[in-house]
């Protein structure tokens, strides 16, 4: 099963431990996490379910290409990293 981890900066706002969940795509894996942790969804996705503008997702070392439907495939046992870019003052 894929392993999904979240940026520590998110933990200031919502508890989000690393989770092992089923999923053949990034969408399926994240949906499985959000099913257990509904409040987390709105921090990562916008109202239409797309990845928030300044968030990033990597599958292993590969950056997510489909930021709208999150259809990138996830190999069995892959690491999914949900990250952000800190910026501004």
């Amino acid at each position: 099963m894929p392993r999904v981890s979240f940026t520590p900066n998110l933990r200031r706002h919502v508890d989000c431990p690393t989770a092992e969940v089923p999923g053949r795509t990034v969408r399926e894996a994240l949906d499985a996490v959000f099913a257990q942790n509904p409040r987390l969804r709105g921090y990562v996705l916008d109202d239409q379910g797309a990845l928030r503008h300044h968030m990033q997702v990597f599958v292993g070392a590969t950056q997510l290409r489909d930021r709208v439907t999150l259809g990138d495939e996830v190999p069995a046992g892959a690491e999914i990293h949900v990250l952000q870019a800190l910026s501004g003052g």
Binding site: L10, V14, Y43, V44, D46, D47, H54
Partner: peptide, 26 residues
């Protein structure tokens, strides 16, 4: 929250404690 989107909190004890409440969504 620049990266994590808008959120709403509510206090029912004059600001002693705050809880995240439902966020409006389109």
């Amino acid at each position: 929250h620049g990266h994590f989107g808008p959120k709403l909190v509510r206090s029912r004890d004059k600001g002693e404690t705050w809880q995240e409440v439902g966020k409006p969504a389109y």
